[in-house]
């Protein structure tokens, strides 16, 4: 004898299954959040201890925060990181937007080939080219200023930026651009007044991703910013960690300070970031 389940019982089973699934997903996410947030928690707690308190595991103090600025030129280094980040991202955005628009909307010979060449540069890891890059930049005498590092970051970030903007502008219908032209715009006008405002999610995506990458990077800063006064925060922290007597709580306080800007930028732009990263998936 076969058992035929009524539609009602099917519905009950499927909704119960959904509750179970959602609960499981919820707990998995909580677990992941704990794994992600735990280092921040440790950083925060440790930073409010003295070195002794850290070793013994008891007590709290604001000493490491008070001493941070004297041990490490933290404000200057934050400023250095900000200058390098802003300048690099500005170049990456300007080049990315213009090249992306050109690749997506202007027809010219070998355009696709050039685009492929540009995009394939994304596959080259920094470590593979860092030595020749250093030699080049040093030859131009650019290792003692922000410019060398800015140019290297811009060169590393531009291929991705071009790729993202090209994909983005390809989705803009040709008719929209033609409407702009008939309305009285030239190609520059179309780019700045129509395409650019439409590309805000892509701009946000590139800004956030590059900001996080450049802000958190150590290698380029270490190699290309030789002048101690121009060191970014990551290099400063590394120097602190490499010292003979490292105060772990101070290091944690410094790390927290250095992590904050990237987190703020991420949280501020994340709404656009999701839209920018899912280009071509939605619609």
């Amino acid at each position: 004898m076969s058992v035929v389940s009524s539609p009602m019982s099917v519905r009950v089973t499927s909704s119960r299954r959904r509750v179970v699934t959602r609960t499981a997903i919820f707990f998995a996410m909580v677990l992941m959040a704990i794994v992600m947030l735990y280092p921040f928690f440790v950083m925060l707690v440790t930073s409010f201890k003295t070195q002794n308190q850290y070793l013994t595991g008891h007590g709290t103090s604001t000493q490491s925060w008070r001493q941070l600025a004297s041990t490490l030129p933290v404000y200057q280094q934050l400023l250095n990181s900000t200058i390098v980040c802003t300048a690099s991202i500005a170049i990456i955005l300007v080049v990315g937007v213009m090249a992306g628009f050109a690749f997506a909307k202007l027809q010219y010979r070998f355009g696709n080939l050039v685009f492929l060449g540009m995009v394939s540069a994304m596959m080259v890891p920094l470590q593979a080219i860092v030595i020749p890059e250093y030699v080049n930049v040093a030859r131009f005498g650019l290792t003692n200023g922000y410019l060398g590092a800015v140019l290297v970051y811009a060169a590393l970030g531009t291929p991705f930026s071009i790729f993202l903007f090209t994909t983005y502008f390809r989705r803009v219908p040709d008719e929209l651009i033609e409407a702009g032209i008939v309305d009285g715009l030239g190609y520059w006008g179309v780019l700045w007044r129509l395409a650019l405002p439409m590309a805000l999610p892509a701009i946000a995506t590139v800004t956030v991703l590059q900001f996080i990458q450049i802000w958190d990077d150590l290698l380029v800063g270490l190699l290309f910013l030789q002048n101690p006064a121009e060191r970014p925060i990551t290099v400063g922290l590394a120097a602190l960690a490499a010292g003979r007597t490292t105060s772990i709580p101070q290091l944690m306080a410094g790390s927290l300070v250095s992590a904050l800007p990237a987190m703020i930028v991420y949280l501020g732009f994340q709404r656009f970031l999701v839209r920018g990263l899912t280009l071509g998936i939605d619609r």
Partner: peptide, 19 residues
Amino acid sequence: LPKDRDIAMVFQNYALYPQ
């Protein structure tokens, strides 16, 4: 140039500026 022809065009997919 198109902008100097003083003509207006209505496109098949309207081509309205989304922003």
